[in-house]
Design a protein around this nucleic acid. Structure first.
Lengths: 342, 342
DNA sequence: CATGTATGTCGAATCGGTTCGACCACGATA
DNA sequence: TATCGTGGTCGAACCGATTCGACATACATG
């Protein structure tokens, strides 16, 4: 079952078997065939662990995901899928490592034990311990998202600042004067989650540029919270006519909340956001949104990582995408409503 | 950076360092502290690959998922999350291996190269090559779902036969006389996907037991297909008053299609199904459904796998769950409708 | 005092591969 | 004929850990 067994049965040395398999030195056609016959018969496959030890690389990358207990959003799921896919195409295996909370053991095990040749890190915070930790180990890594100082690292990201700003401009173009930003959970925003932070920045800037009225609010990542979020918003700001959002999971709730308030989308109320295309198209009416190109980002992250693994001294690179807004069914010209309270 | 370096700097042999770390033989307190100091200073962590080679186990399990290109359903996602979670608690890493189509290289790489100590297999078909392959390698494995002959293997599953049958009985109890089964995609059913096959069996049986009229149909895994599926059903069977389904992804579409037809759920039309709790609760109105206990199944699968890894001769076990139907907002007494065509 | 037992340490073998240096046989070349 | 290159093979070293057997020292026991 190991290379020695194959060698013995073929009457050659272990090195000859190895060379017959790798082709790194010539082996006579005759012996090659004899060896191959034995291999086929026994169904021998070289032990990946032994190979990894000798070669000094595991042909495995780690994908560090947010703790699995918190449900992955559609966009995150898209990242996982495309990373796994791209890695597979490059004959790399993917070790899944949840991080955060009680899962830090897993991260430490994978990183410290050098079980992988490189790491793809998702869900980066503006200040992120894991980045610091990876830096000290010297293990190549690429992040999906960036921290506060992304200068000396390799990353891919979407520009949620620009994207949300585009949403606001689009809504303002349609005549909306009172626009709310529905961000992700307060907890996430508080712990310095990049996309939320940057969405906020883009929102504030665009609001100022257009001289319209803006309201910012946080909302937990589920439909129920979306409903109550809209209730609260309409209660406190009855003249609101549009929402821009980066909160995918809340979207069904936002739709429902608006409907409960007796408003029709997009006739009475507009929504624009940043979401997975799949999700945007499946909502009803389909969401006008900047579709996060998770496939491209994930695939590119893996490519960049492979580059860094091959040559860790390669200069750092990055990729910042700002896909256009796909106009679907949730934005329309503003129809001013009388505020019942004003 | 390796154990030899630590040994040299502490002035002891490599074996002493190893024993100091593992505690498998006594080491004097003094040397232990000296070694520990060096380790802390250099941030040394033993190489997992070398350890794996020597010990003959990798402390890694593979999780074989359906090809990532096809979007995972909520239930599948629940399985992944709980398996990763449970493995993490047992200090096992999880290697993600997509299988099917072009991804079979990945499966072969992981299994053949003995990169893992055991395998959790998801999305089992009634006839499944991967099960056959795993059998010949002798690698311990546990399946989530079962194939046609699950006698000599270890598996966990939900009893979709019983579950769908319960849905039918529940609907029949409410007076529904014409009930449709919305199964998963025709392709999946055709290739012998267990849950679909068993749902069909349970449906047919329950229909017969209650002497009601049943219609079976397949539906692709997305909202759009759900809409057209309902359209088609109501067109061909205008007197239909209820749907039982195992198709999570189609649910939003089913709701929408029913609404389009001018029917209200649950007043005019009832739905009962099998789905992830999370999803059922987030629909509007919340879905009356048997909630798939993905957490429990995933965790149990890992436990069973760990058992088999520790002792491959352990007798095979299984776990078949049939959670009760949670009554939520989508089922109500039948209100007969006149068929516009009859 | 001899013997036995436990503590503490070391060197060498081992896991299953890859790879380097050496060697032989052969035909081509000077 | 002496030399060289090359095809083909082997043995040994190596990757970085663990573990076994051996040995030395110290202490308790008969």
């Amino acid at each position: 079952m190991n290379i020695g067994e194959i060698a013995r049965r073929s009457g050659v040395s272990r090195s000859t078997v190895s060379y017959a398999l790798s082709g790194k030195r010539p082996v006579s056609e005759e012996t090659r065939q004899r060896i191959q016959a034995v291999i086929d018969e026994l169904g021998y496959r070289p032990n990946a662990t032994a190979k990894a030890l000798k070669e000094g690389r595991t042909r495995t990358i780690a994908l560090v995901i947010p703790p699995a207990s918190r449900r992955l959003t559609d966009v995150q799921l898209g990242f996982v899928a495309s990373v796994v896919d791209a890695a597979g195409r490059a004959d790399l295996d993917v070790l899944l490592s949840p991080s955060g909370g009680e899962h830090d053991r897993s991260f430490e095990r994978v990183i410290g034990g050098r079980r992988v040749d490189g790491v793809v890190l998702m869900e980066i915070r503006l200040e992120d311990d894991r980045v610091t930790r990876l830096r000290q180990t010297g293990l190549p890594f690429v992040t999906i998202g960036r921290n506060r100082h992304p200068e000396d690292m390799t990353w891919v990201d979407i520009d949620s600042d620009i994207l949300i700003s585009r949403c606001v401009h689009h809504l303002a173009d349609l005549g909306h004067r009172r626009i709310a930003l529905v961000n992700r959970s307060a907890e996430l925003v508080a712990t310095g989650y990049g996309p939320s932070y940057r969405a906020q920045a883009g929102f504030t800037r665009a609001i100022a540029e257009r001289g319209v009225e803006g309201v910012e609010t946080c909302c937990a990542d589920d439909a129920q919270s979306g409903v109550s979020c809209v209730e609260r918003l309409l209660d406190e700001h009855p003249a609101l006519t549009a929402i821009a959002t980066v909160n995918e999971a809340a979207l069904p709730g936002l739709y429902r909340g608006i409907e409960h308030a007796g408003l029709a989308v997009p006739r009475d109320f507009s929504i624009a956001g940043v979401a997975a295309r799949h999700l945007a198209e499946n909502l009803h009416p389909p969401l006008t949104a900047a579709d996060v190109p998770a496939d491209e980002l994930g695939a590119r992250a893996v490519e960049l990582l492979i580059e860094r693994i091959a040559d860790p001294a390669t200069p750092h690179r990055d990729l910042l995408l700002a896909p256009p807004i796909s106009l679907r069914g949730t934005t329309a010209p503003a129809r001013p409503r009388d505020s019942p309270l004003s």
